[in-house]
Amino acid sequence: MSIPSDRKYASTHEWIKADGDVMLVGITGPAQEQLGDLVFVGDVRVGAKLAAGATAGVVESVKAASDIYAPVSGEVVAFNEALNDAPETINASPYNTWIFKLKANNAADIEGLLDAAGYQAVADAS
């Protein structure tokens, strides 16, 4: 699975993409492959103000549970409610399935994250 170049990445395996004045956040292809079949995505609190690197929610699979982290500081403004009934959507299409929307405190913070090539190197090493 190729890593899309139209977004930025955290070394903790989240992707972030600008969507107007908010940022879409999801998990990467390598992350969902390591987790296996997802059975739960949640514990995301709309209205939560998060620092970069803070836990934003959780994804659970048949193998393990893993925290989802905020790639940049900001406020959670939405959770993808469709994931309540179909968490496996992330397995099928990780780069087209956002988990939460974040209103960044400073949209320029996204530039400090990894590009696709930088993330690919991190994914290959893990």
Rank of each mutant, 00 (worst) to 15 (best):
Ile110Pro: 13
Lys103Ala: 07
Ala78Ile: 08
Asp43Val: 07
Glu111Tyr: 11
Leu35Ala: 15
Ala123Lys: 00
Ser11Leu: 00
Leu102Ala: 11
Asp37Asn: 00
Ile68His: 02
Tyr119Arg: 00
Pro4Trp: 00
Leu83Ser: 11
Ser11Lys: 07
Tyr95Ile: 13
Lys103Phe: 08
Val46Arg: 14
Lys103Asn: 09
Ile110Gln: 13
Val72Gln: 13
Pro94Cys: 10
Val39Ile: 12
Asn105Asp: 10
Gly74Asp: 01
Leu114Pro: 02
Ala31Ile: 14
Ser126Asp: 10
Thr97Ala: 07
Met1Asn: 01
Asp43Trp: 12
Trp98Met: 15
Leu38Thr: 11
Ala107Trp: 15
Asp115Lys: 05
Gly57Thr: 11
Gly112Cys: 09
Ala86Trp: 15
Ser73Asn: 05
Met23Gln: 06
Ser66Met: 06
Pro94Arg: 05
Ala82Met: 14
Asn84Val: 04
Ala10Asn: 08
Phe79His: 13
Gly112Glu: 05
Pro30Trp: 04
Ala108Pro: 00
Asp124Glu: 09
Gly57Arg: 06
Val58Met: 08
Ala107Gln: 01
Val77Gln: 07
Leu50Ser: 08
Thr55Ala: 09
His13Ala: 00
Glu14Leu: 05
Ala108Thr: 02
Leu114Asn: 07
Val39His: 00
Ile110Met: 15
Thr28Cys: 02
Arg7Gly: 00
Trp98Ala: 05
Asn91Arg: 02
Asp109Gln: 13
Asp124Ser: 06
Arg45Glu: 15
Gly118Ala: 08
Ala92Pro: 14
Val22Lys: 12
Tyr119His: 06
Ala116Phe: 03
Glu75Ser: 15
Trp98Ser: 02
Asn96Gly: 03
Ala54Asn: 02
Tyr95Asn: 10
Leu83Trp: 12
Gly112Ala: 02
Asn106His: 06
Met1Gly: 10
Ala123Asp: 05
Lys63Thr: 11
Ala70Thr: 10
Val41Asp: 01
Gly47Ala: 02
Ala54Lys: 08
Leu102Trp: 00
Ala31Thr: 09
Asn91Trp: 08
Gly57Trp: 15
Ala107Phe: 05
Trp98Arg: 07
Ala31Cys: 13
Val25Ile: 07
Thr28Trp: 13
Gly118Glu: 09
Gly112Gln: 03
Ala121Glu: 06
Glu75Ala: 02
Ala64Val: 05
Leu83Asn: 15
Asp85Ile: 04
Val44Glu: 07
Ala117Leu: 14
Ala65Gln: 15
Asp37Arg: 08
Ala54Phe: 13
Ser66Val: 01
Ala117Trp: 15
His13Gly: 00
Ser11Phe: 13
Val44Cys: 13
